[in-house]
Simulated scan of single mutants.
Amino acid sequence: MPIKLTDIARLAQILEKSGVDTIEIEEPGQSLKLVVDTGPRMAASAAPAAPAAPAAPAIDHSVIAKADVAGHFLAAHPWRDQPFVAQGQRIEAGTTVGLVKIGLLYAPIVAPAAGTVDAVIAETGATVGYGTPIVRIRPLS
């Protein structure tokens, strides 16, 4: 029985809630590897940072375009030299901001809102999982 996208989304939610970042499922004729971004990780050799002085909480209205599938992030289509988006570029909702390469397939990552590209968070070639932040967008005022 094929794995449905709704099942993948539900599995990713369960993984995230339980603190598990990877699951691999193999059945005859199909396999699924789901990698969930659990946030920044501190290197084992890094010294703990000194506590920062309390500051007023900043309100961040940024919108994040996230990966819908696991694979390798591509900022540009393999046949093109230019990335889909660049920092400072104004984009519309639904604009393709990158691709996730899954084997021979390319899944688009689309902007959830119109705005200005604040940063491309993911690095080209990086392994990304369901929900991995890819591009940060400042909504239009």
Rank of each mutant, 00 (worst) to 15 (best):
L15Q: 08
I8F: 09
I23S: 10
D118E: 06
P78I: 11
L105A: 09
A86D: 13
A126V: 02
A9I: 07
A47N: 15
E27A: 14
V20R: 10
K66T: 12
A70H: 08
A86V: 15
K17D: 10
I134A: 06
L104V: 05
P54Y: 04
A93R: 04
M42K: 15
Q30W: 15
K17R: 12
F84W: 07
H77Y: 04
V69T: 14
V35W: 09
P112Y: 13
P139K: 13
A46Q: 09
V135E: 11
L11M: 04
L32H: 01
D37H: 15
L34P: 05
A119N: 05
F73I: 06
W79M: 12
Q87I: 12
W79A: 10
F84S: 07
K101C: 01
I64A: 07
I25G: 00
A75G: 06
A12V: 08
G39K: 12
K33G: 09
G19E: 05
P83R: 01
T96H: 01
I121Q: 03
V128N: 05
I64E: 04
I64W: 03
V135F: 12
A65L: 11
A111N: 07
Q82F: 01
P54K: 06
K66S: 14
G94F: 08
K101F: 00
D118H: 06
I8W: 09
V63N: 00
A46T: 04
I109D: 06
G98L: 04
A114Q: 04
H77E: 04
T132I: 05
K66A: 14
Q30H: 14
Y106H: 09
Q13R: 10
A86W: 08
A43N: 13
I102N: 08
L11N: 00
T116Y: 02
